[in-house]
Amino acid sequence: MSNPFGTVPAAAILEGRATDAYFERTRSTLEHAGKDPHVVAEVTADQFPTGSFEVFTGISDVATLFEGRNVDIDALPDGQLFDGGPVMRIEGPYLEFAELETSLLGFLSQPSGFATAALETRLAAPDSTVLSFGARHVHPSIAATVERAALLAGLDGFSHVAAGEIIGREAGGTMPHALMFCFGEGNQADAWRAFDEAVGEDVPRIALADTFWDEKSESLLAAETLGDDLDGVRIDTTGSRRGDFRHIIREVRWELDARGHEDVDIFCSGGLGPDAIENLRDVADGFGVGSYITGAESVDFSLDIVEISEGSARSSSEPISKRGKLSGVKAVYRTADGGHHVALADSGGPADGEALLEPLVRDGEVVREFDLEAASERCLADAEAVGFDPSAE
C-alpha cells in the first residue's frame, strides 16, 4: 500500500485537493461565469484586540503551500503573539488560492494552539526544565508539528524520535514503566543498573521511581543503586494514587537530602498543566507535559475577503465583508507598552507603533527565512512585552 495509514498525501495538499468541497463548487461556478476577481483576504481569529494573547505559528508550512502561486502574502513573524486583527494578508486573483483555504487554516490553527498551551507551561516554571511528552496523544503524522510548537514556546526538549529527525533536534527520554515491568517487582535495582550499562554516556540517568513501591522507597533505592551516577528520579504517580502530590515530592526531596543525595533532581510528569507546575516548581526540578499541550484548543482562525475588484488594480477596489467582520485592508501594530493595535492600512498606526505584518510571498516566491531558535526568542520576548499571563488564559 502506498498510503497504509490513510493520511492525506502532501501532493493533495499542494494541489489544493485537501479542501472543503464547496471550494471546488466555487471554482466551477466562477469559471462558468467568467469571473476571477482580484481580492485581498485576511486571516483573523478576533476582529478587535481582546487582551487575551495567543502564539502565531505554522507560517513556514503556509509559505510552502503558496510557493509558485500568483499571490502576495504578508504575515506576522513566526512566534509573534497576537490578540486580534489580521495575522496574514493574501492579495491576488481569487482562483489562485480558493481551494487552499482549508489547508491554510489547518496549518495555522492547530500549531498555534499547541504553541500557546506550551507557552503557558513554560511560564508556569520559567527556571525549571520543561519537556514535551505529548506526541503520543496525536496522530503520528503531526508529531513534528507538536514538538516544534513546544520548542518555539521555549520548552527545553521533547521525546519523539522521528519528529527530532524532521526538526533537526535530538529527542530525549529515559525509561518507561514497561522497562520496570520487564524486570519485575523487587528487581528495580537490576533494571536501573542495566539501563546505566546499556545507554550512552550522554543520556541522563533519570530513574523512574514510582512503579511498584512508594515514591520515597524507590527513589532512595535508585540513589543507593547508582550512587553519584544518578542524575535524578522521575515521579509519574497515577492520578488515582496521587493524593497531595506536592507533599509526596517534598517528602522525596527531604529523604534524599537527609541521606546526602542533594544533587539528585526530581522530575515530575503525568497529566500536568500550568497550575500543577506552578504549585510544584519550588520543590521539583523539572516537568514533562503532554496532554495539556496536545489537548489545546485550536485557534479559531478564519479567512475572509476584505477588498475586491474586477481588475488587478487596487485603485478600483472596494472594501467588502460579511456581517460581523470588518471590511478594508488592515494593519496591526505593537506599541512600546505592549499594546496590540488594529487600523486600516492606509490610515497609519500609533505614533510609536511597529507594524507587525511582514512580506512572506511575493509573486509566488517565498521571501522569508525560518529559524526556530529566532522564533522561540521572539515568542518569549513578546510574551514578556505583552504581559502574557498563563493564569489569565
Rank of each mutant, 00 (worst) to 15 (best):
A63Q: 07
C379T: 11
L123T: 03
G273W: 08
G164R: 04
S316V: 11
D352C: 12
D285I: 07
A355L: 05
V264W: 13
G154Y: 09
R241I: 04
F181C: 14
E24N: 05
H247M: 12
E42C: 05
D275E: 14
G260N: 04
G286S: 00
E101V: 10
Q80T: 08
D202V: 15
S309C: 09
A313C: 07
L123I: 02
G85A: 12
C379R: 14
S109Q: 04
A222D: 04
V342G: 08
P126E: 00
A11Y: 05
I277A: 08
R17S: 10
G85N: 06
D263T: 03
S132K: 10
L357S: 09
R362W: 01
H139S: 14
L155R: 06
G295N: 08
G239A: 15
G271N: 03
I320S: 12
T238L: 14
L280M: 11
R314S: 11
R169A: 15
H261G: 07
A343R: 15
D61Y: 06
A374T: 09
D190T: 08
G286W: 08
R323D: 14
E67F: 06
T121S: 14
V161C: 00
S219R: 14
E262T: 15
D352I: 05
D337A: 06
R362C: 02
A296E: 04
I248Q: 13
V386E: 15
S315C: 03
L221H: 09
A223T: 04
G92C: 03
L380G: 01
F370R: 15
G172V: 11
E147F: 02
D20T: 07
S269W: 04
L230D: 12
T26M: 11
D285A: 11
L65G: 14
R281G: 01
T116R: 09
G85K: 13
H38F: 11
M1K: 06
C182P: 02
L108M: 09
D257Y: 02
S217C: 01
D337E: 05
F53D: 03
R234D: 08
T174I: 01
L344A: 15
R136V: 10
A385C: 09
P204W: 11
F107Y: 13
A374I: 08
L152H: 02
A336W: 00
E262R: 13
D74H: 01
A383P: 04
L14R: 15
S2Y: 05
E365K: 00
P390H: 01
G16W: 04
D46S: 10
R250A: 14
S312K: 12
E101N: 09
P319M: 08
I206Y: 01
G79T: 11
M88K: 05
G311A: 05
A33V: 04
E197L: 15
R368K: 08
H261W: 11
G227C: 02
S109P: 13
L155T: 09
G290W: 06
A163V: 04
G364I: 01
P176G: 13
K330G: 11
E369Q: 15
E197I: 06
M88N: 12
A11M: 12
Y292D: 11
V299M: 00
D346G: 00
L208E: 02
L65M: 11
H139M: 12
I320C: 12
V361H: 09
G68S: 03
R148D: 02
A189L: 07
S217V: 15
P390D: 07
A209S: 13
V62K: 05
